[in-house]
Computed example of a mutant assay.
Amino acid sequence: MNEKVFTPKEVNPLNSLDEWEDAVLERYPDPDSIASSKATEEYRNYDDPARDTVKEFYRLNHTYQTYDFVQEKRNNYLKFDKREMPIWSAFDFLNQLVDDSDPDTDLDQFQHLLQTSEAIRRDGHPDWMVLTGLMHDMGKVLCLFGEPQWAVVGDTFPVGCAYSDKIVYPEFFKHNPDYANPEYQTKTGIYKQGCGLRNVHMSWGHDEYIYQMLKDYLPESGLYMLRYHSFYAWHREGEYQYLLDDHDREMLKWVKLFNPYDLYSKNPEPPDWNKLKPYYQELVARYLPVTLKF
Rank of each mutant, 00 (worst) to 15 (best):
Thr188Asp: 12
Tyr184Glu: 00
Glu183Ile: 11
Asn176Thr: 12
Asp178Leu: 06
Gln212Tyr: 13
Tyr184Lys: 09
Lys174Asn: 14
Met202Gly: 04
Pro219Gly: 02
Val200Trp: 07
Val168Trp: 08
Ala180Phe: 15
His201Arg: 15
Gly189Asn: 07
Val200Leu: 08
Gly196Pro: 03
Thr188Leu: 14
Tyr217Gln: 05
Tyr209Pro: 01
Phe173Val: 03
Phe173Ile: 08
Val168His: 08
His175Met: 13
Tyr209Phe: 10
Gly194Asp: 03
Phe173Tyr: 15
Lys187Ile: 10
Cys195Thr: 15
Glu208Thr: 03
Trp204Val: 03
Gly189Val: 05
Lys174Phe: 10
Pro170Val: 03
Phe173Glu: 08
Asn176Trp: 07
Leu197Cys: 02
Ile167Lys: 02
His175Asn: 15
Val168Asn: 00
Asn181His: 13
Ser203Lys: 02
Tyr169Arg: 12
Tyr217Gly: 06
Gly205Tyr: 00
Pro177Tyr: 10
Tyr184Asp: 05
Phe173Leu: 10
Ile210Ser: 00
Tyr169Met: 14
Glu220Ile: 12
Leu197Gln: 00
Gln193Thr: 11
Glu208Tyr: 09
Lys187Asn: 13
Ala180Pro: 13
Cys195Leu: 12
Gly196Met: 04
Ile210Thr: 07
Asp178Tyr: 05
Asp178Val: 08
Asp216Ser: 14
Glu220Met: 09
Phe173Arg: 06
His206Leu: 07
Gly205Ser: 05
Leu197Arg: 04
Gln212His: 15
Met202Asp: 07
Leu214Phe: 09
Asn181Ser: 11
Asp207Ala: 04
His206Phe: 07
Asn199Ile: 12
Tyr169Glu: 10
Phe173Pro: 00
Asn199Tyr: 08
Asn176Ser: 13
Gly196Arg: 06
Asp207Leu: 01
Lys174Met: 14
Ile167Arg: 00
Val168Gln: 05
Gly196Cys: 08
Tyr184Arg: 11
Ser203Val: 01
Lys215Pro: 05
Tyr209Glu: 04
Pro182Gln: 11
Glu171Cys: 05
Glu220Gly: 11
Cys195Pro: 06
Met202Trp: 00
Lys187Ala: 14
Ile190Asp: 05
Glu208Leu: 08
Arg198Trp: 10
Ala180Ile: 15
Asn176Tyr: 04
Gly205Val: 04
Pro170Phe: 01
Glu220Ala: 13
Lys166Arg: 14
Cys195Val: 15
Tyr179His: 13
Glu171Ile: 09
Pro170Asp: 02
Gly189Ile: 03
Pro170Cys: 12
His201Met: 14
Gly196Tyr: 04
Gln212Glu: 15
Ile210Tyr: 07
Leu214Met: 11
Leu218Ala: 01
Gln193Asp: 12
His175Ile: 07
Phe173Lys: 06
Trp204Leu: 06
Tyr211Thr: 07
His206Glu: 01
Pro170Arg: 07
Lys187Gly: 09
Ile210Cys: 04
Met213Arg: 04
Gly196Ile: 05
Glu183Cys: 09
Cys195Phe: 14
Arg198Met: 12
Gln185Asn: 12
Leu197Met: 13
Glu208Asn: 08
Tyr169Pro: 07
Lys215Ala: 12
Lys174Arg: 12
Glu171Leu: 11
Glu171Ala: 11
Val200Tyr: 05
Asp178Gln: 11
His201Val: 11
Gly194His: 02
Val200Thr: 07
His175Tyr: 15
Tyr217Phe: 13
Ile167His: 00
